[in-house]
Design a protein around this nucleic acid. Structure first.
Lengths: 147, 147
DNA sequence: CTAGGGATTCGAGCGCGCTCGAAGTCAAGG
DNA sequence: CCTTGACTTCGAGCGCGCTCGAATCCCTAG
């Protein structure tokens, strides 16, 4: 493990970074290719070694993606970051806009969720309401029905 | 507008249905093609005339889509519907599962929203907090952060 | 030295959910 | 009559976000 110079490679391999972030190695390379990540430092043999900062970046990118920001918009945001501190106000604008969209989206989903509850209620009523709705908390417990 | 027989075509044209549901005419035809909608009744000239029931169906399909159900799963659900009342319990199962995923998704988004607030806060701090953040009350009541 | 394993780059391919365009039909209006 | 325009069917195409596979390279173990 130790090399003769005493240098221990620092940082995580791409596989380790993948398992810690939940992002596939393929996707990690892809993000780097398209400029969402700055070139990740390389260890011996040109292998990527992810630093904590790199991981943090990945996590943030994942947050943006999962909240519906497009790859293209993420690229624009990252470009702002690269341009230095004088773009911080712009970055805040982007994030605030994104937050607004996200809030609206969450509200929409919440309304849809309520409508879905109603629909389920209607169906259950049709089935005959023996059960005093033992269903409003288990989620994964597994939904039993009986005739 | 009135034809000699006194027959007034009933229901909405595809364009009207589109503007009322927010779903494009292209997509309405597509949904019918792939079996998400039963064949919509036709008026003179073979043109579609959407009934209120049809619109209701479109709205429900839209809800499922917007909450992340795949077209494929929607097709399976619709197929159950077509098979008659004895599939109601199965339909409930599908909807309950979907509700669980939706709840989890909303929770994830809510956590991401909180993280986003934090990030914005950090950036604002860097900018120097002249502005007493005139932004932390609108939209949603949920999710407050405090330093 | 050889073999193995896991990384590298790169472009191509894929699944999803539309989205579009071509070609045709029909009814009303001038 | 002919035009206009909104509809019809159908298959093809598109944009997105990955996802994969081939070829190559490097390091380590035996």
């Amino acid at each position: 493990m130790l090399d003769p110079t005493g240098q221990v490679p620092t940082g995580l391999t791409i596989e380790e970074a993948s398992s810690r972030t939940g992002v596939s190695a393929h996707t990690l390379r892809y993000y780097e290719r398209i400029g969402l990540m700055d070139p990740v430092p390389r260890g011996p043999g040109g292998h990527r070694r992810y630093t904590d900062d790199d991981l943090g970046r990945v996590v943030f990118l994942t947050l943006l993606r999962q909240t519906g920001m497009s790859i293209r918009d993420m690229q624009r945001f990252v470009e702002l970051t690269r341009q230095g501190d004088h773009t911080i106000a712009d970055r805040v604008d982007v994030l605030v806009d994104h937050r607004a969209r996200l809030r609206a989206h969450v509200e929409l989903l919440t309304r849809h969720l309520a409508a879905l509850e109603t629909k389920i209620g209607v169906y259950r009523t049709i089935l005959g309401v023996e059960h005093p709705t033992p269903d409003d908390e288990p989620a994964l417990a597994g939904v039993k029905e009986q005739p």
